[in-house]
C-alpha cells in the first residue's frame, strides 16, 4: 500500500499542461477526437495533461463527451 499516492499525484505538475483557458478553448475539438478514438491525447498532449490534473475542466469534458456520444440521458 502506498498511502502517499494521492498526495504524490496532487503535487506532480506536467510541464505540457496548457491550463484551463486553452483546454476550454479547444474542448469541442478534443472531445470529438476522443469520441472517435482518433488520437486526441497524441495530438493534444497539453490538453490531456491538463484534464488529468484539473477537476473542473475534466468534469466539463465528461459532460461534453456524454452529450456528443448520446449518453446524456
Amino acid at each position: 500500500m502506498n498511502g502517499w499516492a494521492e498526495l504524490d499525484r496532487f503535487l506532480r505538475t506536467d510541464p505540457r499542461d496548457v491550463g484551463c483557458a486553452q483546454a476550454m478553448e479547444l474542448l469541442h475539438v478534443y472531445v470529438e477526437l476522443v469520441a472517435q478514438d482518433t488520437g486526441a491525447e497524441r495530438r493534444h498532449p497539453g490538453i490531456a495533461a491538463h484534464l488529468r490534473a484539473c477537476g473542473p475542466c475534466s468534469d466539463d469534458f465528461e459532460g461534453l463527451l456524454a452529450a456528443v456520444t448520446g449518453q446524456d440521458d
Binding site: 469541442h28 473542473p56 468534469d59 452529450a67
Partner: peptide, 18 residues
C-alpha cells in the same frame, strides 16, 4: 468548423451548467 456545429454549441450549455 473545427468540430460539428452541435458539439461546439453543446459546449456552451455544458459550461453554463458548470
Amino acid at each position: 468548423g473545427e468540430s460539428r456545429f452541435t458539439t461546439w454549441a453543446y459546449k456552451f450549455v455544458i459550461l453554463e451548467v458548470s
